[in-house]
Amino acid sequence: MPDMASAELTAAATTARRLAEGERGLRAAPGGPRELTDLTGALNVLDKALAHSENRQREFLLSVSHELRTPLTATLGYAEALADGVVGPEELPMVGETLLSETRRLERFVQDLLDLAHLETDDFRVETRPVDLDALVGKAGTVWADRCARHGVVFRVERPGHALTVETDGVRVRQMIDGLAENALRVTPAGAPLVLALAPDGDGARLQVRDGGPGLTPEDAAVAFERGTLHARYQGVRPVGTGLGLAIVHRLAQRLGGTVTARGHGLEGGACFTVRVPGRPGATG
């Protein structure tokens, strides 16, 4: 029996090493004492988890390459036309506008990629201090009221109207507000509402961005913060962004010790995203 257990343990160690070297689809045969059976079972679960994670990464990279290719192709085509002198004077404004628009798309996408990568590093800094979220939401509301007006969207702010102070990173909270509002404005039709709401939540605060857009199915809400999932699902169906914005908001909320959740249909009929900001770093509310 000891020799058999030793052989099975050696086989499990070999499986673990092969997994570490990148092999997938391995199957550790169960058997032997309970501890050894638990070990082989864990190795099989790890194999499936690694394969799933790597498949998602592969799909994400394919999505990234597709998103980069479209503006790059347009930019390259117009740049070559300019270099070859085949663009007439009357076409120059249109070509310049297209080049600027596509370059900005590339810039936004690359910045989102960098932000997401930075959020995953150990040296990402959160600078906490007392922040009046009521004042912060008021300032954000001024900006988004103007942007919504340009799109014919009815913007509204709901806030206490008095100081609501928490220990947090105000820059990162504003980044989350902007990310959620950008996402909402993209899908909200003219004449429909977009709401930025703030309310106390225990010793912290609750931020919401609600819209009058098409909303989310339960399946959408379950994967809303996965990189590129909704982007791939709705590309060509309704306006989409880089596919990274909601993932960035989710990671920022975690970094601040809070949470962000998605609901398919809120008070205005469209999606509702709720961020809970704790009263102080590490607080669980």
Rank of each mutant, 00 (worst) to 15 (best):
R34G: 00
L92T: 12
T121C: 07
V110P: 08
A190M: 11
P130H: 10
T37P: 00
D122S: 15
W144K: 02
Y78K: 08
R159K: 08
L82T: 11
F124M: 02
P214D: 02
D47H: 10
R255G: 04
T165E: 07
T128E: 12
S101A: 15
G282M: 04
H52Y: 14
G212S: 06
L39Y: 10
G25A: 02
S6R: 08
V86M: 07
F124N: 03
H151V: 01
C272Y: 03
A163G: 04
V240T: 08
H66A: 14
G213Y: 09
G282F: 09
I248L: 05
P130V: 04
M1Q: 00
V237G: 00
R238T: 06
A135K: 06
G141H: 05
Q235L: 12
T284F: 05
G215E: 05
V64Y: 11
L180E: 02
F60C: 06
R125W: 09
T15S: 00
D84W: 15
D123N: 13
F124I: 01
A199N: 13
G257R: 02
G25C: 02
T128S: 13
A20C: 00
A190L: 10
V195C: 06
D146W: 11
A13R: 04
E107M: 14
E107C: 12
R210H: 10
V153I: 12
Q208R: 15
S101K: 13
T284A: 08
G170Y: 07
E120N: 13
S65E: 11
A117C: 05
A190C: 12
T242P: 02
G179C: 08
A12G: 00
P71W: 12
R186K: 15
L62F: 15
L61N: 10
L26S: 00
D220E: 06
D112E: 14
E91L: 14
G191V: 09
R56V: 11
A20G: 00
T40N: 02
G270L: 06
L244N: 02
M1S: 00
L100T: 15
S6F: 04
G245C: 06
L61W: 15
A140K: 01
P160A: 01
N44Q: 08
G88R: 12
C148L: 03
V143S: 03
V110E: 02
V131E: 04
V195Q: 08
A163R: 08
V249W: 05
E59W: 14
A135L: 08
E97Q: 14
